[in-house]
Structures are given as C-alpha cells and as structure tokens.
Design a protein around this nucleic acid. Structure first.
Lengths: 356, 356
DNA sequence: ATGAAAGCGCTAACAC
DNA sequence: GTGTTAGCGCTTTCAT
C-alpha cells in the first residue's frame, strides 16, 4: 500500500527487476543495463553499478526467462531431440556441445522423443520458439515435416546423420559408408570370406549412404559375392544383435564374421556367440560401430569403428550458433571421418580360421 | 501499410495469434479461447470456432512459448538435471516420466550438468522460472544451495536419491540400504566370507543410508568381520570398477566376491577378473546394482539389484505435478523397494569355492 | 457470443 | 548518467 505496486518478492514469487530497482533506488532500465554488462559502455556510474549489483544479490534476483525471451525473441537455449537416452552414443556429443554452447552463452537441453512416429509431437508442442536452435537425431525425427516448418520460421536446425533435401536444414554426419568399408575390409584382410552384416531397418535407403554401402563396396573390391542371406535386419538393441546372430548361426553355411550396426548390437552378438559356445575371435569375428567406452570391457574387447563424437558436438554447436547469429552459412553439410579401432574381437595378427 | 501493423508472418517470423485473428476476422481473444478449448464453455459459436481452427491451420500457427509462459506464469516444462547421460540408468526413469508428464500436459527435458561443482551454474542460469518443476540427480547437484532458493520461489523440486534437510524439497529414492543388504546376504548365503564392496566416494555419509550400510548390516548379521581393506573407493565408471578389482586382487588375503556400487562398475569388475584369469562365478562372484539391460549381456550375465525405474519416473512426475498444482503434498519422501535379480555372476545353487 | 484493453517481466529507443 | 516509455505475444477480466 506504500508502493504503487506490491513487490513481487513479497507476493511469494521470484523478485523482479522492478523489485531490484526499488531497493537500489534506480529505474528498471538501469538494472537491465548493469546486469547485462552494457554498463561497460561507461554509461553507468560505478556507484550505481555497485548499488544495483548488491541489491540484486540481496534479493537473489534472476531475470525471468520467459520475459527476456519474449522481448529479445531469443531463448539462448539449444535443444537436442534424441530418440532415446538408452544408447550412450550421444553422451559425448552432448557434453562437447554443452561446453561449446556455454562459451557462446547458450545452454543445451535434451528432449527425448519416443521413436514412435506420432510422438515427435512432444517437440512440435514445444516449438513456440522455445528454443533458438535444435539438433535432431534419429531417422523418425529427422523425417518429420515439422522440421521444415521450424526452419522456415527461423529456428536453426541441424540434423545428425541425416541429409535433408531442404537446404535450410544443416547436417553434421559421420562417414558411415567409409566406416562400413573399413570394418568390412578389416575382416577381409584377416582372411574372412563369409561376412555377415547385421543392421537396423533403414527407411529411406536412398537418402544417405550407410554402413551397408561400404560393406558392399569392400566385398566387391575383394571380388567377394554379396550373399543376401548374410545381411540381416533386426531391432536396434543388444537383444536385437543377439537374435540376429542366432539366426545367422542356423545357416548351413555359417559366416565366420559379422559387422554389426553399432556397439550395442555387437554386445548382443558377443553374448549370442558365447552362449552357443563359439570363441571370439577364433571361431567368429565381430566388428562394432560407434566406439563406445563399453567396447573396452566386453569379452573380448570390441574392435569397432570409432566416431569423433566430441568433434560432432562442437561442430553442431558452431553450425547452429553460426546459423542463429549470422543467418546463413557457407557450408551446410559436414561429413566427419571415422577410424578403425582394433581391439580383440577380430583377432589382430594371427590368421583366423577359414570357414569350418 | 494496409494494416495498422505488419503481419508477423510476412516479416518472416512465426505467425502470431494476431495474424490468425486477422485472417479469421475475429479478435485475438477469440483465438485464445478457441485454441485453448475454453470454447467448450459454449461461448463461441460453432461457426467462428471452425473459422479460427482453419485459419490457424492455414498459417501453421503455434502459440509462442515465451509469451504464454510469461502471461500464465507457468511453462509446462519439467526438467531433469542429470550429472551425465553416460549411464543409461536414467533412461527408463526419464521415459516413464515423459509418458506420465504428457498425460498432464507437461513436457520433460533433460539438462546434463557436468558434475564439477561450479557448473550447476548452467542450471542456475536457466532458472528464471524456465521450468515449472525440476528433478535433480547426483550428489553434487543436489547439494547446491540454489535448489533451496528455487524451492522457496515456488519451483517444485524433487531430488532423486537424496534427502534434503529442507522440507520444501521432495525426494524419490530407492532403498539403497536394503539393496546393499540383499546383495551382500546373497553372497553370504552362497558361502562367501570375504566379500569386498567397491563404491564411489560419498561426500556426506550421514545424509542417507547407502549401499555400504546394508553391506555392513548383512555382514554383522552373519557374524562376519568388517575388514576395511575390503571396502574400496573408486571412480564411478567401468574403468573405476576395473581398477578397484585389480587392487583387491593384490591383497594377500583375496576376497572371493565383490558387491559393486552399480552395474557399470560391475562390468569393469568382470573385465578385470577375466583379464586376470579368474573365472566368474567359480573363482570370484560379482553382484551389481541398478538392473541395467546391459547386465543380461555380460560374461557371465550379471546378478544385480534391480530398481523400479519406471515407477521412479512416474512417481517423480506425480509428485512434481502435485506440488505444482496443489502447492503442497502430504508425503514428501518416497522410498521405493529394490529386488535381487539372480543371473549368473554369483553362481546360483552350487556352493562356490571357499577362499583359495 | 465477441471485442477492447490491460498487463505478465523484460529490454531498447529515446528523452532529459 | 539515468529515467520514461513502448512494446514482445499471449491470456483474461470486463464491457458490449
């Protein structure tokens, strides 16, 4: 009653800049100037600056995010839309992204979108410009038409491992084809002739060259036939890898090696082989894909195709922030190299058995 | 120039409710009424309703999140602050939470806070009420004084696996002590006498009973001595588990079994044992903690303490939304039961070897 | 049944 | 140097 307006803090909510202004005996504008560092334009006297700082500290003032975002038309949040948190693959990417983003004053969050098609929805709901930029992973998510709309409205979008026909959507990918080639060639060099590839279902095979294309190339290069019964499609999980291998072992002409879609599936594969009494790598060789930390601790340690995950995270953020702040970028598509990481699941130097 | 105000859509941004209003030939208020379903109060004629819907669809209108949040003082977002995405432990929790939240009209996001103390900061920055509720995991994060402040301002906070002295912070936990007891007793029943416990550093041992307390209880109950050299503290990772076991194997009086802090560390333990030529469970038994899917695929499959992760996720959300909407809740602390999941890493029925 | 207008908390022109 | 003012896009009384 003594004030035109009750202090917000008194009302139980968070203190507002008006509260700070009242306490410091200055105007709201001054608060904003000081707290956003624009006081460096020497427009604010050192004396007031200190008063404002201390008043803000005393009240525990934090600017209201919604209000600021509304006014500035920018949230300073970049979000990752991931199919699941189950696979630690994204862990390093997100960590690296977070560090890079922080340096530019952005925060990163993750929203897990269930892979069921309809539920990209969760994002669509959030997209009243709740984020300045989004990075999308997972085929289902990348395919969503909402992405184009977002991009059209000025939200920066980068797709992980997925090329969009629309040029407004950037992409950062790893060279899957090269990875597939490297993995398969490694197996061939070790003497294997019947090499299986276990993969997940690929919805739009023409969009992007995947592991299987590199697998084919390596086979062709070595003059090895491509046996369709050796390419099995399964669910993307440890259990899926396990089942796929069991199926392959039923074949009257067993393969002697398998190149697995990713490390998770490879873990399943190792398990299936062990269960069936096959020794790895002596009886059967396995190559994974991703380079997860886990691969060091499998039995035996997993030979795999390592991804530069920290680089991915950093480049994603640089791309996104570039797009947000400059509007448009020269290079729309980044393609990062992979490398073969030799551990023990293929044997190293000794010649493996030829098919039994 | 033909309108008082240029359409926002024309300016390249997202369409606003004013744009929709103009197109439908009604007022902004009507748009809001219709789109928020408050038209069910029969205040809006079916005719206008349809016109609004179609105008909105035509423009691809989505309400601006910042503006709505500002006006309603609520964001309808609940965020998880997790120490890392590396450990898939949280995956199921977050999934279950997302499903529950969605039913109440809330979205869930995750923000990974690096465990280094200073960097809870990232959150503190975001907390200009950017979220209606937050759930915090990880000791470092839970300990942050910012939490109390947030709670004081009306942000609902639940801590995972951590009891706060402040009653305004809710908690949902699993009965760690019981888990430790179950794991250790299982080992004792199998005939082990020298049982190690590998754990991570616990900063404030008095806050909450942890696995190690259950371990002590089981030992005491069986009249077994507590040998301090058998309790080793290591980094929380597969590599940490590995190193801890290697250290234990150096002991002139080796343990015959280890109860590991979590499944990740247990994976490291299995690896170390394998490397040193010990057979599990014949030469050494291992119990994990968490019940990750991964445990089915280790060599051998891991006996562990399973957590009701889906229940945790659901209860967290119910608690949070209850707190947000009702203001205060009867039950502040939830303690959920765990159960022993017997696989093969301890042997099942046959008696293990007594110490070598 | 609908429109007009106020205001959420903040920042950015523009005054003084 | 600092205060005043005008919105950002939305929801919500209160009029009509």
């Amino acid at each position: 009653m003594d004030q035109r307006k009750a202090s917000n803090a008194k009302r139980g909510g968070a203190p507002t800049s008006a509260d700070v202004a009242r306490l410091a005996g200055v105007s709201q504008a001054t608060i904003s100037l000081v707290l956003n560092g624009r006081a460096s334009k020497v427009r604010i006297s050192e004396e007031t600056r200190k008063r404002v700082i201390s008043a803000a500290a005393q009240l525990g003032y934090t600017p209201n995010h919604a209000a600021r975002s509304l006014r500035q038309r920018s949230t300073k949040i970049i979000t990752f839309v991931l199919p699941t948190l189950e696979n630690p693959y994204y862990s390093d990417i997100v960590s690296a992204a977070q560090i890079a983003a922080q340096q530019h004053g952005y925060a990163v969050s993750v929203i897990p979108a269930r892979t069921k098609p309809g539920e990209f929805h969760a994002l669509s709901l959030l997209q009243g410009a709740a984020f300045d930029g989004i990075v999308v992973a997972g085929r289902e998510n990348c395919a969503a038409p909402e992405l184009l709309q977002l991009a059209a409205r000025g939200v920066a979008v980068v797709a992980l491992q997925e090329r969009s026909p629309d040029p407004s959507i950037y992409s950062v990918s790893v060279d899957l084809e090269a990875g597939g080639y490297l993995a398969t060639r490694h197996l061939i060099e070790l003497g294997h002739r019947r090499i299986a590839h276990v993969m997940e279902e690929l919805p739009r095979p023409d969009t992007w060259r995947d592991r299987v294309d590199g697998y084919r190339r390596a086979l062709a290069e070595a003059g090895l036939p491509l046996d369709p019964s050796l390419v099995v499609i399964t669910e993307n999980s440890m259990a899926g890898g396990c089942k796929a291998i069991e199926q392959l072992l039923l074949d009257r002409q067993r393969p002697t090696a398998a190149f697995m879609y990713n490390d998770q599936m490879a873990v399943g594969a190792l398990h299936a082989l062990r269960t069936h009494g096959l020794r790895v790598p002596d009886d059967f060789a396995v190559v994974g894909f991703d380079g997860l930390a886990m691969g060091q601790f499998t039995a035996p340690p997993l030979t795999t195709i390592d991804h530069p995950r920290r680089d991915i995270g950093r480049i994603v953020i640089e791309t996104l922030i570039g797009a947000i702040e400059k509007g448009s970028l020269e290079v729309k598509q980044h393609l990062l190299p992979v490398k073969l990481l030799v551990r023990e699941s293929c044997g190293g130097l000794e010649a493996p058995n030829q098919k039994p």
